[in-house]
Amino acid sequence: MPIIEPREKEIWRYLGYRNEEPGQDIRDRITHCVETLQRECTPKHIAREFSLEILPADAAHAGPEGGKSRETLPVIRLHDLAITSSSLAKNLQGCEKALLFAATLGHAPDRLIRRASVTHMSDAVIYQAAAAEMIEAYCDSLNDGWNASYTQQGWILHPRFSPGYGDLSLSLQRDIIRLLDTPRQIGLTLTESLIMLPSKSVTAIIGLERTDPDHPASAPQTNCAAARSGCASCTLTDCLYRR
């Protein structure tokens, strides 16, 4: 099982420290919580490639049953899905297929947070922040691995994009969970209100664009954290955690 190395500064950021550094006592607790998480987490992931097609807004309009709002939005056809979202369409511009993926740290963070909530709430928020960073770091490391192998095969990875970003509906979670069979494959489930459990989990779409050998940098850059996690293309500009 992979050991996930979180970025300490990201944990501080989740805890609300903006430009300051926490004192030694808090940093000791962070170290303790991270070590516990590293020992107890059971990271798992699953990914699958699907071909996709983007129908621009006017083409999507041609569909017989498009409602009013649909008429002005592009539609992404991905396997058996027809996703209406302009932010995702923008993100996937130029891609002919996409990697659908889901990753989770398992049940340990939820249990540790719950347990700490009874004994030391200050530890609970640290577990919460550390685990939030660890699932990001885990996704980044998976991303890096795919980046390496796809680049070799002549593909470029677009920044990963998750349900809830921009105008991409959260209800897409249901389809991702179904297509990847995540309850069985990695133990990731959804509640009726679309909450992922275990809670330290991520689902996302990563567009794959064929590189043009003459114009290698035609796609969005994937080497900065913000691009990788999709902050740059997200419309929730007032988000507390926007980079």
Partner: peptide
């Protein structure tokens, strides 16, 4: 004021 942060606030509360 933003000079003390959530973990410390909670430690004090505890």
């Amino acid at each position: 004021k933003g000079t003390l942060f959530l973990p410390q606030l909670l430690r004090s509360a505890e």
